[in-house]
């Protein structure tokens, strides 16, 4: 399956890019996407969204999903 990936704020700088595409075989979760992107473990404070809804690393994915990784939010 093809997954669109987005990074925001300090994580975008850490990863050195704003977006990426990942191709995964068979069943996969958000955790598998991170493993494809980086050999480092995901920083502990990072939040995850799939198709713009907050979720966690265990969420199962389907083809075409948009996965976003970002630090804690600081709006308002």
């Amino acid at each position: 399956m093809e997954i669109d990936v987005k990074f925001f704020a300090s994580l975008r700088e850490y990863m050195g890019r704003t977006s990426d595409k990942v191709t995964l075989e068979g069943e996969a979760t958000v955790s598998d996407v991170w493993s494809e992107l980086s050999s480092e473990p995901m920083p502990g404070n990072i939040l995850v969204a799939v198709n713009k809804e907050y979720t966690d690393l265990g969420q199962a994915l389907k083809n075409g999903d948009e996965v976003a990784f970002f630090p804690p939010v600081t709006g308002g």
């Binding site: 704020a9 907050y54 630090p71 804690p72 939010v73 600081t74 709006g75 308002g76």
Partner: peptide, 28 residues
């Protein structure tokens, strides 16, 4: 609304100090 907007809406502040240093605000 303001409290939960601050907690849930994805915004990120990056501040610039007088010394020109850029810092991402880590939490509200």
């Amino acid at each position: 609304v303001i409290n939960y907007l601050k907690e849930r809406a994805p915004f990120w502040k990056c501040e610039v100090t007088t010394e020109g240093k850029k810092t991402w605000v880590e939490h509200n």
